[in-house]
Design a protein around this nucleic acid. Structure first.
Lengths: 227, 227
DNA sequence: TCCACTTTGAGAATACGTGCACAAAGTCGA
DNA sequence: TCGACTTTGTGCACGTATTCTCAAAGTGGA
């Protein structure tokens, strides 16, 4: 019988769980580097900043990779999570919009993870096109289609002004990009079958402001009575 | 009878709602600029990228600010949401860690919102201390306590390496900062009564990678059959 | 082999968030 | 004043996420 394409189209993993897998991944990498062979859900929970029951339930969605009485084999679990997250393969990434933020992202050595490699920088400003940032030259956004195809880019990082965010997102999608990380402070939609995640500084600050206010924050509170 | 201190310690607003208020805020600012006097939940939903029932339910947590048959008064609703989010007052912000990302954030003119003003930049690197970024000079992290108190800083932005994130967060909290926006790729905890929100690029990319992989993403998919 | 101990995996209870559907409350023209 | 129409506010049903709990499955020492 013909099996499915690709690696793991098995059980459905809840979104909330997917969002925590990277935490476990990071904790496991650190633990592995210390040559620790196994890890309990309790310890993993502590490292990931969640609770142990959640860890076990999350991992149980991936399969039964633990051993009762012992815990999880660090290397094995790391391998399974990597595979699930697609970190065993290479993801060429494009950054669109080489302003303050785009430049910082282009120079950022903390995509942390193996796998994600910035292979193209785009901007609409002809002044910027051709300028080098690290090892890459900024390319014209008019070449988006061609470059995305040539370099197999599946993930785009959007760091453009709010006013053009939707337009640029549409062009990324049309070029074949399937995932977008959007830093533009604007509502922006993509068709079904394309993923988008949003990072919005203004929104984060406003949320913090809400809770800060609720705590009765006229002046900042000195931590005078910390014990 | 003696009323409560401060502005609005009334009903409890669900977290998910709080996270959407900034979207409504932004949509309302734009609508207000176009001199539109009232707005329906339907239209507001469209601008905020959510559905209309959600908008109405969210707004109903703030109070009954709409008029049936008409919609919401843009200016009035904007005022109420601003007040709820604490955007009617000034929030002095400190950025700690003036590397690539910290510098970009310091130059970022898109905190979008009135209210948030970066008033201090800190770094541990003595080479960096004294250097000017825009209108501010980088200060030593040893002066954190004094500066936070003097300038009434309640919100800190953490853009330091993962290895020192927890330590710096602790120092911010000890200095009296009540809200932290954490860009460091590390699990980092704060005591009760302090808020922390996390922005982690590596995690976002890994989540995108997961879904990209699930869609059967060997090569990126050209959008050949878009209609 | 047995027993005390550890730790997972999953059922069940609960909490939280979403969205439908509709009565209630308003507008506006005749 | 009436009746057609618009739009809010919210009760309710449903789905998702979290957490508690404990049997099952393992270890390791006697």
């Amino acid at each position: 019988m013909a099996t499915e394409v690709g690696a793991t189209p098995r059980r459905r993993i809840p979104e909330a769980t997917v969002a925590r897998l990277p935490l476990y991944y990071r904790a496991l990498v650190e633990t592995g580097e210390r040559q620790v062979p196994t890890i309990s859900s309790e310890r993993l929970a502590e490292l990931a900043g969640v609770n142990a029951a959640k860890v076990r339930k999350d991992l149980s969605y991936l399969g039964s990779y633990g051993t009762r009485g012992v815990g999880y084999d660090v290397e094995y679990l790391l391998h399974e999570i990597s595979r699930e997250l697609g970190l065993t393969r290479d993801w060429p990434v494009a950054i669109v919009g080489i302003g303050n933020l785009g430049r910082a992202l282009a120079n950022y050595r903390g995509f942390g993870a193996r796998g994600f490699r910035v292979v193209a920088l785009f901007d609409a400003d002809t002044e910027l096109v051709g300028r080098r940032i690290g090892e890459l030259a900024v390319e014209s956004i008019d070449d988006l289609d061609r470059v995305v195809a040539e370099r197999g880019i599946a993930i785009g990082i959007l760091a453009v002004p709010a006013a053009v965010a939707q337009d640029v997102a549409d062009r990324l999608v049309a070029a074949g990009v399937g995932s977008i990380l959007n830093f533009a402070p604007a509502v922006c939609t993509v068709p079904d079958g394309v993923s988008m995640r949003k990072v919005d500084l203004a929104i984060e600050l406003q949320i913090l402001s809400f809770y800060q206010l609720r705590r009765g924050a006229g002046a900042p509170q000195r931590a005078e009575l910390r014990d």
